[in-house]
Design a protein around this nucleic acid. Sequence first.
DNA 1: GTCGCTGCAAAGTCTTTGCAGAGAG
DNA 2: CTCTCTGCAAAGACTTTGCAGCGAC
Lengths: 155, 155
Amino acid sequence: MSTATDFTERTIAYNKLLNDFKNLLKKNNLKFTIQREVILETLYNSDEHLSPESLYNLIQEKHPQLNTGIATIYRTLTLLEESDIVTSLSFGAQGKKYELGAKEHHDHMICTKCGLITEFVDEEIEKRQQLISQSLGFQMTDHSMQIYGICKNCQ
Amino acid sequence: MSTATDFTERTIAYNKLLNDFKNLLKKNNLKFTIQREVILETLYNSDEHLSPESLYNLIQEKHPQLNTGIATIYRTLTLLEESDIVTSLSFGAQGKKYELGAKEHHDHMICTKCGLITEFVDEEIEKRQQLISQSLGFQMTDHSMQIYGICKNCQ
DNA sequence: GTCGCTGCAAAGTCTTTGCAGAGAG
DNA sequence: CTCTCTGCAAAGACTTTGCAGCGAC
């Protein structure tokens, strides 16, 4: 039964996201296409932080008939990022990774052996960031933090 | 007089860095070349966080007779990074920037309008990072934090 | 002298762009 | 119908690599 509830909640949350996206498109005279929906849906259903290429591969796999081009992935990710629907991360390696930004704010812990990315939040750190910005006369709009190391499994 | 002292201290610090670099090269059967020295020196004398290209331009300007190739810059930066002499940063934009890593640890505050990068340290945050890593069974090797916003001048 | 280093240019990545046809509103 | 989107392929940005001659040791 818990499964049914989860499913319902998940669906509701996704529908809200989808509606927000549709409204945003309408407001800007942009069109709601099947490719854009599939990209949003795939991002939503992935727990991972996806690179444009892995997103492309996932979509090729699940929706081969669409034959979505990699250019569309890039264009849509740019659009989603500008609209603050997704956030991009650029760690040491080359290339960016994307995640849905609608979730609550969090930071990242990256395993340098297996690439595992774990999310975490720490209220104390968030507070200190505010304080530091203020003390330096800096008007903070965003921030990100990464901890690199070896995860439990790889030790 | 303070200027003279600063100059001396600066020179001593640079000579130490240079010697460490020379020793490292020797230990690994690598050669100490004028290009490698100029790259290290230029990094040392720059307050900025340099991209490979801006480093290349600086060196072309100051040492035109060397005609240092951009490939050498990349190769040397890779070498310096592997040797933990410089650290690379990859923020939102594409491409990495490099800074001498010998200085004490610090984090970065980036102005999204003018690109200004300010450094800062906060002991409290450093402590919390340790705690969080431990509590998640993560063996921290490194970490980085960026605050994005609008700097004093651009507001 | 030996063997690593360098500049050059060519080759790789990853990302963006121009264009003509497809499709949403 | 109009005007945006899309896939494709070509072009761009950034970085790496192969090679022949150069230079540190």
